[in-house]
């Protein structure tokens, strides 16, 4: 518990390596896209981070339910880890998306369902942290946090559905023929290699960060425990 597990150290190293490989594949290996040019290369990391952001969001809601059912604080640590890591990845997704959107759509931002839902999700996360900050009793903090992730997990998909009623220009890259006009494109096989490797790499990094964050949560708790022992 006190010393870092060897498996985690190994995973840290693997994470760095796959990040490097994914960067190489998307920046140099994959061919330059014909219409959009170099800027299209952010797409690999954009989708990779979006995927793990979404994964963290779903895991957080599931961990919230698991906490409410079992009342086991381990689920709370898992939930916080998932929310924190997912917040960071969604933020990267949004930034990368903006970089791509500027030349492609001629605007940094557009109120499209995916973008807006991502932004709303970030706001839900911020609200989540503010809620937790305002509560002193760790059990109550865990309970309220779990309830809120559950509400957020239910509301975000509905937000997505509603905004789609208004409009969309976001491309559906895979398996859609009509998307090309809006900036979609067909992937060559080399692009697919970079794309799927980026998905794989970010999944590994996600697991690594989750593991580190959960461990940090455990360490925080033992520090609290030690402080209490000293006080007595």
């Amino acid at each position: 518990m006190q010393s870092k597990p060897i498996a985690l150290t190994i995973l840290d190293i693997i994470s760095i390596i796959v990040l490097g490989v994914a960067a190489y594949l998307s920046l140099f290996f994959a061919p330059t896209e014909a219409v959009m040019g170099q800027v299209q290369r952010v797409f690999y990391f954009h989708v990779g981070t979006a995927w793990v952001g979404l994964l963290g969001f779903i895991l957080a809601a599931a961990a919230g339910i698991a906490y409410l059912v079992t009342k086991n604080m381990a689920w709370d640590r898992f939930e916080v880890a998932a929310v924190e890591v997912s917040t960071m990845f969604f933020f990267i997704t949004i930034v990368l998306g903006s970089i791509w959107a500027r030349p492609a759509w001629n605007t940094w931002w557009t109120w499209d369902p995916r973008l807006t839902t991502a932004a709303v999700t970030e706001l839900i996360y911020i609200a989540y942290f503010m809620l937790r900050q305002g509560i002193d009793d760790p059990e109550k903090r865990a309970r309220f946090g779990a309830v809120y992730t559950l509400l957020g997990g239910l509301s975000a998909p509905i937000t997505f559905m509603v905004i789609r009623l208004f409009r969309t220009i976001h491309p559906v890259v895979i398996g859609s023929a009509s998307a090309e006009a809006q900036g979609g494109f067909d992937m060559t096989s080399d692009m697919k290699v970079a794309f799927f490797f980026a998905l794989f790499a970010f999944t590994v990094i996600f697991i690594d960060l989750m593991w580190n964050r959960i461990r940090l949560g455990q360490l925080e708790e033992s520090v609290e425990q030690l402080k209490l022992n000293v006080a007595i």
């Binding site: 709303v120 706001l123 839900i124 911020i126 609200a127 503010m130 809620l131 900050q133 305002g134 509560i135 002193d136 109550k140 309220f144 809120y148 509400l151 957020g152 509301s155 509905i158 937000t159 559905m161 509603v162």
Partner: peptide
Amino acid sequence: AQTRTREILLPILLFPVAIP
């Protein structure tokens, strides 16, 4: 109502969830 920030917190919690 059970948190330290109380009144300030409600709109921050409520609006993102009530957007739909």
